[in-house]
């Protein structure tokens, strides 16, 4: 790798770290400095003044905000996410297992949906403006209008309840046999795949079409190269960057979609954990989860940027 690329990648990484820092400020401000009293919000209107004072002391609300922020940030950097208000448990401990559950689910959804979407995108390009292409774009229009829980509960209703192929509730536990675990995540995984598939496919189609319509492809065709050579030597290297970008954007989308899907299937992951603690107004947990979700989301976007730079020499020389 040339030093120019290394420098560009280093710049992206530094930018990412800066962005994460800014996001941490935003999340902290969002949960701490909003109008109204956090202690009051947690305990409700009927709380006694003593209880309020106790909780304020416990939350450290009597200290200035910037000190609390640096305390919290320092904790995150050393892996200490604090303790949950609702049950006094250590957050890092309860999060670890849930994070790996969530990543496991998201990973399998990605393994299924990415190749499928690229394949279908290629099919759509092959039959451009034909019946299959029209069908695909109609499906896309429909599927971006469907809420995740509609797809999820349809699957539960027909596949889990009527056909009884897979369990409707995705219970997973430590030491679960691999095939049982796969059967448990089958439906959430299918839901996530359906949610992102259409979008990813449409964007893949657009990316490939964009490349196929460019002048150098026409030149390659006109000088009589075989279609195979045109696609693999001329079109493919140029289409990698946009396709990787599409995939990464959708993976980032997957990380968010996982929240609703986990609640549908009662899957013990990060999303479920976050939602439970939002309704309990357990702020330390919400902050930690928000930070982790944001970090995963930002990292995926940075990876997309870096892959694009490595795959496309034109991006190495910004104007």
């Amino acid at each position: 790798m040339s030093p120019a690329i290394v420098k560009l990648i280093a710049q992206r990484l530094a930018l990412g770290v800066l962005l994460l820092l800014a996001v941490s400020v935003l999340i902290f401000v969002g949960t701490q400095l909003l109008p109204g009293d956090v202690a009051q919000a947690i305990l409700g209107q009927s709380a006694t003044p003593e209880a309020l004072a106790n909780l304020r002391a416990e939350l450290g609300l009597n200290e200035p905000a910037y000190l609390r922020y640096f305390d919290w940030l320092g904790g995150i950097l050393t892996g200490d996410l604090g303790t949950a208000l609702s049950n006094g448990q250590d957050i890092s401990e309860s999060l670890g297992k849930r994070l790996s559950n969530t990543l496991f689910l998201a990973m399998w959804a990605a393994i299924v949906s990415v190749p499928l979407a690229i394949l279908l995108g290629l099919v759509a390009v092959q039959h451009r403006n034909g019946f299959i292409d029209k069908l695909i774009s109609a499906t896309t229009l429909t599927s971006i209008s469907l809420p995740e829980f509609f797809i999820g509960y349809l699957l539960v209703y027909f596949v889990a309840v009527e056909l009884q192929w897979f369990p409707s509730v995705s219970t997973v536990y430590d030491g679960m046999p691999f095939n049982e675990r796969m059967s448990a995540i089958a439906l959430p995984c299918a839901t996530l795949t359906l949610v992102v598939l259409a979008h990813m496919m449409r964007m893949t189609r657009a990316a490939i079409l964009n490349v196929m319509q460019s002048a150098y492809i026409e030149t390659a065709e006109l000088k009589g190269l075989s279609p195979f050579r045109v696609i693999f030597h001329h079109a493919f290297p140029n289409a990698i960057a946009p396709i990787v970008n599409v995939v990464m954007l959708n993976l980032a989308f997957l990380v968010v979609g996982v929240v609703v899907v986990e609640v549908i299937f009662v899957y013990p992951g990060m999303g479920q954990y976050l939602v439970d603690h939002v309704s309990k107004r357990d702020i330390p947990v919400v902050q930690a989860c928000g930070m982790i979700f944001a970090a995963v989301y930002i990292s995926l976007n940075i990876v997309a940027d870096i892959v694009a730079i490595v795959a496309n020499p034109r991006l190495r020389h910004p104007k």
């Binding site: 990380v255 929240v259 944001a294």
Partner: peptide, 10 residues
């Protein structure tokens, strides 16, 4: 930079 749903939950 923060997913909308996550920030709304926070």
């Amino acid at each position: 930079a923060i997913p909308t749903l996550i920030f709304a939950l926070v």
